[in-house]
Amino acid sequence: MRCEHLADLLPGYDDAGAVDQRARRHVQRCLRCQADLVRYRRMRRLLASLGAETLVPPDDLLVALMLDLDEAAEVGSGSMARRRLAYLGGLAAATAAGVGGVLVLAARGRRVAG
C-alpha cells in the first residue's frame, strides 16, 4: 500500500470501520502518514472545540420566535373554530331544510284535506 492510497482514508482514520488492517499497518510504519494523521487529529480536536462556542443571536430573535409560535397557535385554534363553525352551520342548514320539508308537507296535506 502506498501513501497516495491512504490520502483518501486518513480523514476517516478514527471512524469505526473506515480503515482496514492493511492500511493501519502502513500507517504504523510510515512517518509521512503518521504526520498527516496527527494533523487530522489536531484539526478534529479544534473542530470539536468550536462546538463549545455559541454565536450571539440577533437581539429580537427570541421575541420573533414567540410571536411566530403565538401565530401558529392562533392559526391552529382558528382552524379548529372554523371547522366547528362549519359543522354547526351544516347542522343548522340540515335542520332548517328538515323543518322546511315538514312544513311544506303539512301545507300540502291541509290543501288535499280541504
Binding site: 462556542e53 455559541t54 454565536l55 450571539v56 443571536p57 430573535l61 427570541l62 420566535l65 414567540m66 409560535l69
Partner: peptide, 11 residues
Amino acid sequence: LVRATYVGTYT
C-alpha cells in the same frame, strides 16, 4: 424549551 435552546440552535 425555546428560551433554553435558541442560542444553540442559532449557532
